[in-house]
């Protein structure tokens, strides 16, 4: 499936980009594997994944052209 990823907060600095599109992504598990091998610093970062604006906690299959957001925690105030 083609997916569109948005990196929020510190994650966009770690990956060097705010948005990327990926082809042939099946599910969140595959996405995490690819992201962690492409951006090793992501492995140590806490984040949640949202698919089409819905936070997901288990492995989720992607629909074609869905939007996947990676949300890190912020602490500043």
């Amino acid at each position: 499936m083609k997916i569109n990823i948005i990196f929020f907060g510190q994650l966009s600095e770690i990956t060097g980009t705010k948005n990327i599109s990926l082809e042939d992504m099946a599910d969140t598990k595959a996405l995490n594997l690819l992201l962690h091998s492409t951006y090793p610093l992501l492995k140590d970062q806490p984040y949640r994944i949202a698919v089409n604006n819905q936070l997901v906690s288990e492995d989720v299959l992607f629909d074609e052209d869905c939007t996947v957001a990676l949300l890190p925690p912020f602490s500043g105030g």
């Binding site: 510190q10 140590d44 970062q45 806490p46 949640r48 936070l55 949300l71 890190p72 925690p73 912020f74 602490s75 500043g76």
Partner: peptide
């Protein structure tokens, strides 16, 4: 949203 407290130094203040 984030069940576990993040470790210090990982997320900047």
């Amino acid at each position: 949203l984030f069940p576990t407290i993040p470790e210090e130094g990982i997320v900047q203040n």
